[in-house]
Amino acid sequence: MKVALIGCSGMGNVHAQMATNCGLKVSVFADKNIKIAKAIAKQYKGEAITDGMAACERTDIDIVAIATPTPTHLMFVKAAANAGKHIFCEKPFCRTASECKEAIAAAKKAKVKLFVGHVVRYFQEFEAMKTQIAAGKIGEPGFAKLYRGGLLPMGSESWFRDFEKSGGVTFDCMIHDLDWLRYVFGEPERIFCQALMYTKRVPFDYSQVTLRMKSGLIATVIGTWAHPHGFQVKAEICGSGGMIQFNSNEAPMAAMKREVKTGPDWALPSSPVDISPYQLEWEDFIGWIRDTRTPRVTAHDALRAVQMVEAALQSAKTGRPVAL
């Protein structure tokens, strides 16, 4: 199977590598910045183009991978579906829940597989927590605290910093944790959120959520794009028989370069493992295309995640809890 990649920077680089690791050939690299497309196309011996819509329609392609800024996801999903391609779309699925529904309808109509990269479901440390909970190691879980973030990312044309485009840390980053909570503990009941992006005119974001699940479990979730540097993930799950903690700062490796690059830099958390979680999501997606397995995350899950962050931001705006 051959892949066309749209958006060839931060996540695009990761997905080109992961698809290749899975034995796929990434043959078309589309990026509106042709320099970026050319550089990566050279590395993978593919073709560089600027027009993502044209990439979707190529007849020599089976899969379209979308790693562009979130507001562009819908148009590429629809174009790819209409052209009969299977789709790998980065999270957040789309910029609004109604866009997500449109995307799901397009894929359904075209009978193509639409996968959304909620990669935290594939992170080994998160899977280990899920396994321990399922094994009853902490008894009945009653409380969860999740924390994620660091530096405010820049992205191409600073799109992360335009909160209309990215949705701020709540929509872009905390969505990982809200999705994971729903994955492990079931449907949410109501959500309350405070986020800086709706109040203070500060050039960063910080979001704090109190979430009640239908099971009764309470979660406090913090998302930060307020730190001057770094990236950290912390998790804690408490139950009637014990508790679990994870802190990404306690990693097997720490590197300090003498020559420090100036200016902000967007770094993915890294803790070397046998198989990257980004590859695991590709393996799941490919297995689904080949009908050998059902993926860990569905487009419906990705829609629910967007609905959760939308509800959070509505709460942040109104100062009221929002029922889900």
Binding site: G142, T210, L217, I218, S240
Partner: peptide, 19 residues
């Protein structure tokens, strides 16, 4: 605030967690 009495098998007559 969300309150829970759910970390001690409901042995308590109070909340044991608040967010």
């Amino acid at each position: 605030c969300e309150l829970g009495n759910q970390l001690h098998n409901k042995e308590f007559k109070t909340d044991d967690v608040g967010s």
